[in-house]
Design a binder for these strands. Structure first.
Lengths: 144, 144
DNA sequence: CTGCTTGCAAAGGCTTTGCAGAACA
DNA sequence: TGTTCTGCAAAGCCTTTGCAAGCAG
């Protein structure tokens, strides 16, 4: 897994409000985790997030990071992306969009919703309901 | 993971030819594995395949099943489906199509290619090339 | 106070690996 | 006989869990 370019984490105040708006008690650890998740739209796996939070000097345990990510997913703050058998990615863009996934670099790139139209979306089978539509275009580095 | 309805495995002769046509030495174990994979279009994970082969009375080790699945993927006989963080599914339909994935039952259902049209497929970013397009419609059992 | 959170370490589940013996050409 | 393949067990990795101590309100 590649290192992630660390940038400035989001300010704490906005994060606290964001969490409260989603019925999440803003504990220290959750705020620190969320600051890195929501500073800008991005795709992170748990390991990368643990790295970012740790480098910033906050001691947050692995277990808490996983618990927190699960909590955020349940509350709709982030979306799970299942594209790589090795790890789960978390997408901080909650608006609907799709992805390129580079299998050589494990890198995800957004495809805006309007860049790709799906016609005739089939209905969910009887007794089921749709929870999400995901388009993944797998790419690899060009073999020259 | 649910049990898989065991049905009749494909006859050995056709399987041997299939493997040879793909430059795969048809060893006993590979043939037994392939008989269950290619008896009819289906989605199986490694564990289910191990169960099917084992119930049929053939002792094939876990390691060999994984090795064989990897080999078949590399030779284009089956496609990996990454839809569930818990396990990789293998799809024996090599023609292009899409999937419903029931997150409650971990069941995959085919969507024929013509049932779903994608307009304006974006081009792969510079320096990369597309290797596959995957549409996954996640469904769950209806909450009544 | 009382319940929710955290952290540690251990456990779990899927998959890969190392290596010796077996099969195949 | 030399190469490829298989099987076993162990290791690896990501993720979850159990439980005691800590924090929030």
């Amino acid at each position: 897994m590649n290192a992630i370019h660390p940038h400035r984490p989001a300010p704490r105040q906005g994060i606290v409000e964001l969490l409260q708006a989603h019925d999440i008690v803003p504990t220290q650890q959750r705020v620190e985790i969320a600051r890195w998740l929501f500073s800008e739209p991005r795709h992170l796996c748990a390991e990368q997030l643990i790295g970012l939070v740790g480098e910033a000097g906050c001691r947050v345990s692995k277990a808490t990071v996983y618990n927190t990510l699960g909590l955020f997913v349940g509350r709709g703050l982030v979306r799970e992306l299942i594209v790589d058998p090795e790890r789960v990615f978390y997408d901080t863009s909650t608006h609907h969009h799709h992805h390129f996934f580079n299998v050589d670099t494990s890198e995800l790139i957004d495809i805006p919703e309007e860049a790709l139209a799906i016609a005739h979306l089939p209905e969910a089978p009887l007794g089921t309901e749709t929870t999400g539509v995901q388009v993944i275009i797998r790419i690899r580095n060009s073999r020259q």
